[in-house]
C-alpha cells in the first residue's frame, strides 16, 4: 500500500492512544446507553484517530484529543435523531436542593453519611444515563473523566460559559434524581416540612 504508515507511527499510536480505550468505552457506554453502539463508536473513533494521528501534536493531551474525535462522531452519527424539546423543569430545582433536604432531616443522626454511603453504584449510573443528553455529556466529561472546563469546551466545541451552565444544571438534576432514589430505597426519610 502506498500510504502505509511507518512502524514508529503504529508504535506511538499503541503507546499513546490505545491506553485510553477503557475510558473511551466507559464514556461511550454512558453516551449511547448501548453496549453494541458503544463498541462501534469506540472502534470508529480509534480507526479515525489512527488515520489522523499525524495531526495529533505530541506532548498535548491525547485523551482529550481522542474524546474530541469520539464526541464529534457521536454528535453526527449516534445522537438520538428526534431531539424532542426538553421540557424539564430543572430551573425549578433549588441550587441547594440536596444540601437543604439532607440538612433539614432531623429524624436521622447523619443523613449525609447515610446518603453517600448507601447510594447504589447502579443508581448513580442510571441517574447519569437519564440526564438529558446535553447535560449528560458535560457531567461525564467533568465528574467521571476529570476534564477541566476548558478541555470540555474544546472537546464539545462549546463556549466555556455553556459548559459551566450545563454542568451546573446537570449537577442539580443528578442531585435531585439521586435523592429521589435514596428516598424510594428507604434509607433517607422524607423530611417533614
Amino acid at each position: 500500500m502506498a500510504d502505509r504508515k511507518p512502524i514508529v507511527y503504529r508504535q506511538r499510536f499503541e503507546k499513546e492512544a490505545m491506553v485510553h480505550i477503557d475510558a473511551l468505552m466507559r464514556t461511550a457506554r454512558r453516551m449511547t446507553k448501548s453496549d453494541t453502539d458503544a463498541e462501534d463508536l469506540v472502534q470508529e473513533t480509534m480507526l479515525k484517530a489512527y488515520r489522523f494521528f499525524d495531526k495529533f501534536e505530541e506532548g498535548t493531551n491525547c485523551k482529550a484529543w481522542l474524546f474530541k474525535i469520539m464526541t464529534n462522531i457521536f454528535i453526527n452519527n449516534y445522537r438520538s435523531k428526534s431531539k424532542a424539546p426538553q421540557s424539564l423543569t430543572f430551573d425549578d430545582i433549588d441550587d441547594s436542593f440536596l444540601f437543604g433536604q439532607l440538612a433539614k432531616n432531623k429524624e436521622m443522626s447523619d443523613p449525609e453519611k447515610e446518603f453517600f454511603s448507601k447510594i447504589f453504584d447502579k443508581d448513580v449510573r442510571k441517574a447519569i444515563d437519564e440526564l438529558p443528553e446535553d447535560f449528560r455529556m458535560v457531567v461525564i466529561l467533568s465528574f467521571i473523566e476529570g476534564f477541566a472546563y476548558q478541555e470540555i469546551a474544546d472537546i464539545t466545541d462549546l463556549q466555556i460559559g455553556t459548559v459551566k451552565s450545563r454542568l451546573h444544571r446537570g449537577r442539580k438534576l443528578l442531585q435531585k434524581a439521586l435523592f429521589d432514589y435514596a428516598r424510594r430505597s428507604g434509607f433517607i426519610k422524607e423530611p417533614l416540612n
Binding site: A38, E39, Q43, Y50, D121, R125, V139, I140
Partner: peptide, 29 residues
C-alpha cells in the same frame, strides 16, 4: 459520583478487534 459512576468496562475483545483492524490497514506495522 466519580467513584460510583466510574466502572471499568470489559474491553479486551474490543482491543483485539481494533488491533486486528489496524493490522489490516497497515500490514506489517
Amino acid at each position: 459520583i466519580e467513584k460510583k459512576g466510574k466502572f471499568s468496562p470489559e474491553c479486551e475483545k474490543l482491543r483485539d478487534k481494533i488491533t486486528q483492524q489496524l493490522d489490516d490497514i497497515d500490514p506489517g506495522s
